[in-house]
Design a binder for these strands. Structure first.
Lengths: 340, 340
DNA sequence: TTGTATGCGTTATCAG
DNA sequence: CTGATAACGCATACAA
């Protein structure tokens, strides 16, 4: 037989105790004599006993595993966030089950259904860019599943959230461009439905306003599929760069969009920042290797993961229904990298 | 109560059947009348019944989840491989539990212990660079846990393996350098204990030999911690570049080492390829954005993940003990990117 | 201090 | 065709 599990029963039989005695001895219960405990514990160690977590889950009605749903783990921001999640989960004895939506609403639905049916104790989610209907999440939440949102949150659902100050991050990035002398700054934003997109667009407008620049709606474009499809960014850039009164700088709203722009520029022999300037969100450590190195907005991804996981554990392990939900707002970092 | 699960019992009670009838109806058993089936199925759908996978796991002695143990998910190669693993696992109704060793042997031990205690049905692993003692894996394997190695394999354990032709990949990379006219080619290799390292070093030597270049042991260095620590690569480069008879090119044995070199060069104002040439393993799509773009050895990571997962499923679901183990060898790709 | 019985949700076996 | 019962591994209320 595969993986022939040693059970409490085996120990009980071998030692002539009842299963309950063994169970209690292993759990170090106060009602078991020191001697019995010693015998049981030693034997358990000897035959390499490990409690069956599945039986435990069935009994305790919890699996000690949490679900994480993001769009792409191959995205630096998310893999760093997952590292943060994992580090906390791990130290608390929780299992992390990762799923990817690949920015697809349909996939998100299936993943969620799947995770829920796997009896996860809680969910960490950053919604897909296609998602505009949140009833699936709402239903899970109403049914009592602890949920913490991070990065891409859902305002309509009241629970803990972990985000960065996207508005400020965007404002700083655009202000930086303005202060460098750029005047016509385009913004290639993420899907319009995302919470982060709205804040970043808001920050973009604030920066313009603060410097008395009139916004031009021709300079704002959305990547509704999150730029996962290269064509999407290409089309936008093609449009932007072939209109009269071209932009002299671009603010890119995500890692994917930032690198998408760079690929486009490379292909069309457009020089940054001589032909056009570029500042964007990114968590990759490769951007500084570019020449000239790119100024980027970086998010504290690992920390966001840690905080989200901690908050989720609070929800899961709190005895009473939680009423006071908090939204943690962290700061982005503008990494200014001038060409030398 | 949280997540008040609908059970077979609830259905039975509501409909006035026994639990066994309901169970059989849901499983579409032949011994249930069409009418009963219809009633049960409709009601089940109505109240959104989903079988409890934990109860099933306990009964069937399998969890329908597999463990994946890699060093870093933030490494492009591994996140791509995981995508491949996930795509197959997903389509077969398997859950993927991901753990990271962060190149630490101690951490690998703990992770493994953890995964095993979570009753995974199988394991996909690429061992950490610190791991030289494989008895922990051997024990799990002997106890019957299906294991498939990918990328960093363990020769001493007989099971399915998925790798690339590292020797050929390395040979091609180094030959490319030689054909470009470089003569003193250093090799910064990964931890000496890794299977991939040995093959790549072998390929390096083969290329030299094929072009009648005498190997110089001063030009071969190992990153024993996989380059996770930047200092490691820095020290090696410092040593390499400050010896008499400096190398004119470097062959880097991993993504981490390749980008580590680039960071070092950047910091010390060393130009590639004018001051020194560089070719290395990498799966990142950002390397082509560098100027000049880097020539790299790319691995079919996604495909490796798919194949590894398929092989693991064969092991898990085969009725009879498998005897014929195979080692799938895929081809690397040398992406030559000349400066323009 | 230890043992017995029960239940978590499901399916398999055996009776009707 | 359908129902009662046992079992998976564990913890615990209740007995002794």
């Amino acid at each position: 037989m595969k993986f022939e599990a040693v059970t409490i029963k085996d120990i009980a039989k071998a030692l002539g105790f009842s299963t309950s005695t063994v169970s209690r001895a292993l759990r170090d219960s106060y009602e078991i004599s020191a001697e019995t405990k010693k015998i049981v514990l030693e034997y358990a160690k000897e035959i390499n006993y490990h409690p069956n977590p599945i039986a435990l889950s069935l009994k305790e009605k919890r699996s000690r595993s949490i679900g994480v749903l993001v769009c792409e783990i191959a995205n630096t921001f998310f893999s760093q966030a997952i590292n943060g999640i994992e580090s906390i989960a791990y130290s608390k004895g929780y299992n992390v089950v990762i799923s990817q939506s690949h920015e697809s609403y349909a996939r998100e639905l299936i993943d969620l259904q799947y995770l829920a049916s796997r009896s996860i104790d809680g969910l960490l989610i950053s919604v897909s860019s296609e998602t505009t209907d949140f009833s699936h999440l709402k239903e899970l939440h109403d049914r009592g599943l602890p949920i913490v949102f991070f990065d891409r949150v859902v305002d309509a659902i009241t629970t803990h959230k972990v985000i960065v100050d996207n508005q400020k991050g965007a404002k700083n990035a655009v202000s930086h461009l303005i202060e460098k002398g750029y005047k016509r700054i385009a913004h290639i934003a993420n899907a319009a439905s995302l919470s982060i997109t709205k804040s970043r667009v808001e920050g973009y407008y604030q920066a313009l306003q603060a410097h008395s620049i009139l916004p031009d709606e021709k300079l704002l474009h959305h990547c509704d599929h999150g730029g996962l499809d290269d064509k999407e960014i290409e089309a936008i850039l093609h449009h932007l760069l072939n209109q009269e009164n071209k932009p002299d700088a671009i603010f890119a709203s995500s890692d994917k969009i930032t690198t998408g722009c760079l690929h486009y520029f490379k292909k069309h022999h457009i020089k940054v920042p001589d032909d056009i300037a570029l500042v964007g969100f990114s968590n990759s450590n490769l951007t500084e290797l570019l020449s000239p190195p790119l100024t980027i907005v970086k998010q504290p991804a690992f920390e966001m993961g840690e905080i989200a996981m901690s908050l989720l554990l609070n929800l899961i392990e709190s005895k009473h229904p939680v009423k006071d939900f908090e939204t943690r707002v962290l700061e982005t970092e503008l990494l200014v990298r001038e060409s030398t």
